[in-house]
Write a protein that binds this DNA or RNA. Structure first.
Lengths: 147, 147
DNA sequence: TGTCCAAATGAGTATCATTCTCAATTCGAC
DNA sequence: GTCGAATTGAGAATGATACTCATTTGGACA
């Protein structure tokens, strides 16, 4: 079913994309692209509810997993355990406070130009990556210093 | 309580470490260092059970969070939702199959030399980072090609 | 158009890691 | 030894995600 062509990091795979997606998957991807920021499975379910493209929660998660397996969607987990999804074409990563959980998008991806060596891949077909920085935000630093 | 000194990526913070940790936190960190690979909260609880250092599950998670907030432990989430913990001093990251979940340690961190620009940090005190690659492992590629 | 089968769907339930609650215990200072 | 604060842990609560299975949908073919 899936083409075996390598999918380089941060490349446009649109032509491939359309031929592989069914209507529901396209609607999910559209929502993610339109949102401009990451959405959880619950978010997507709530946004589509009531529209002509509404679907059950189980279906949302099923298709999100398939979109991930096709390399079209990446997900990261908040410290709360919630998973947030975004289109992989949006090469955006985050800086998150380990204390309050506040999250800040990084405008540039420091990994953008870095390539893995083939021997590191061990035969894996690379789809996408996640990069996240963790630290303590200014207000939590202040709170820690003056308790 | 916490020192405000910046903690550079991938640096040895041992002298700081000892003065900040209580006994239970030290035991958790020891286990993680001794294991040589990532452990989940459940793993740690099971390993310590029956030893003189056994502690309740709630305590394990409480201290793991604090170790994270001190930048001594990093965690990543498997697609299954399970969180795996490792000492940040072990600058090791992973390549994970989006299909079967098999995970492969990368021997080198491609981020090792990359520095974030101060204006990107927006006042955050940087503690650690997680970097993960996702793809399809050879056996899942084979299975997809010959269903 | 009618029939068949396979795939997709979703409502409800199950799972399971993690967090919360709160009473009991421990610790440190004096 | 006494007091208050901090720590602990057993059990319950939470909540996101996965599973189950009966129903629906859609395409192929007659």
């Amino acid at each position: 079913m899936a083409s075996k062509a390598a999918v380089p990091l941060s490349q446009n795979e649109s032509p491939l994309k359309q031929s592989l997606l069914n209507a529901k998957q396209s609607h999910l991807l559209d929502q993610l692209q339109a949102a401009g920021h990451e959405l959880s499975g619950q978010d997507l379910h709530a946004r589509l509810r009531g529209t002509p493209h509404g679907m059950g929660l189980a279906t949302v998660y099923r298709h999100l997993r398939q979109l991930q397996q096709r390399g079209l969607v990446r997900c990261r987990h908040l410290p709360s355990g919630e998973a947030l999804y975004a289109p992989t074409e949006r090469d955006e990563h985050h800086l998150t406070c380990v204390d309050c959980g506040r999250t800040l998008p990084l405008r540039v991806c420091p990994m953008h130009d870095v390539q893995l060596q083939p021997q590191q891949l061990d035969g894996f077909q690379l789809l996408f990556h996640t990069l996240e920085f963790f630290g303590i935000c200014p207000s939590c630093q202040d709170r820690q210093d003056a308790p």
